[in-house]
Nucleic acid binder design. Structure first.
Lengths: 203, 203
DNA sequence: GTCTATACTACGATAGAC
DNA sequence: GTCTATCGTAGTATAGAC
């Protein structure tokens, strides 16, 4: 079964937005790349902002599909952290646009000059909910920032990241290596020395 | 001594580019914010791309001013890592636009549709040189990616990062905390377990 | 649901007066 | 060195035929 026109438009728009950001992509470009005329795109999405939010909804849904099951399963803190980090990295590695769009949405929050679409608030709320789960799991908010940097930034880093690594970002071997690295980081590096003294740290 | 017109333009452009990216900022907007007409801006910078690169040059120079002295001083690996991480974080914390522009330059490498200005290659070379120094210092390329995520992403994360932390990113206390966190991470977390074991390309 | 045609605005960039 | 005026293009968005 071939994808619907709407799905194809979302696919094309996601790749473009991930590569050049909200302001850097034109509706004409998206429509033509999907094999439509510019005006037909406005039939499916009433504005550029709504197209962008629809793309973001797909991204957050993809991440939730990996993370929510991992977060739901019981276990001690260590096992949950390992499972959740694996799930997060699987989610980011699944599609090369995911991490980029996520990173952009964190940094380009004011991309809409005026009148954000109402669905955007819902996407942000779902994202904040996931962050809350991570904060509860890791204890320290600083560790959440580090985790995001070690995962979302990493898989969003594109050509630059590949130049740093001297190899691909999304190969199975590179993804497995990043899982090991991040888990070792959180379990043996962060937990003890840097975060505990100031606030209450769960043990 | 008041700043020259060129300096004021660079200041204004830096803030705007950091907030909304290359494509999201218009020349008219920059000029008016600096108290000039749009055409006067083209007298100082012959194109938007050259304005952007001039902004990036300031950013990389600022980072080099902190990092190169720290890298030049002798000492054992641990002391050098501590010194260099402190210098990197000082550089990123000095000006709230620095990390954002740096992160954008990593992710928006293809923002120029056609004909990049030649100065851009020089900026990228200086950035790559710094990355090379870090790779030599830390040993593992993966650790460099993690370090960038833990520092550049962190100070670029803006409102989202402040929501995660539940407090400011750039306060003296938050900056000092990040220094402790990143150093503990690299010295006690990463170095031993995750990077060394074996393997390069399984092919 | 897709098309052509169009409205209106903003874009980057240039020319030339002062 | 700054200005006004203008060029050509592309931006989002709408109207209406088919």
């Amino acid at each position: 079964m071939e994808p619907s026109t709407r799905e194809k438009l979302l696919e094309v728009a996601e790749a473009r937005f991930a590569q050049r950001g909200f302001a850097g992509v034109g509706m004409r470009e998206v429509a033509l790349a999907a094999g439509l005329g510019k005006s037909s795109l406005f039939h499916h999405f009433p504005s550029k902002a709504e197209l962008y939010v629809a793309v973001l909804e797909r991204v957050i849904a993809r991440i939730e599909a990996h993370l929510l099951p991992a977060l739901a399963r019981p276990g001690d803190a260590t096992a949950q952290i390992e499972r959740t980090v694996d799930a997060l990295i699987d989610a980011l590695a699944e599609h090369p646009s995911t991490a980029r769009l996520l990173l952009r949405s964190l940094v380009e929050d004011d991309a809409f000059a005026a009148g954000e679409p109402p669905e955007l608030a819902a996407v942000e709320a779902r994202l904040a909910a996931l962050v809350g789960r991570f904060t509860a799991l890791l204890g320290a908010p600083d560790a959440v920032q580090t985790l995001i940097g070690a995962t979302v930034y990493h898989f969003a880093s594109g050509e630059f990241g590949e130049a740093v690594l001297g190899g691909p970002l999304f190969s199975a071997e590179a993804v497995a290596r990043r899982k090991r690295e991040v888990k070792a980081l959180l379990l043996h590096g962060l937990a003890a020395p840097a975060s505990a003294p100031k606030e209450n740290a769960p043990s």
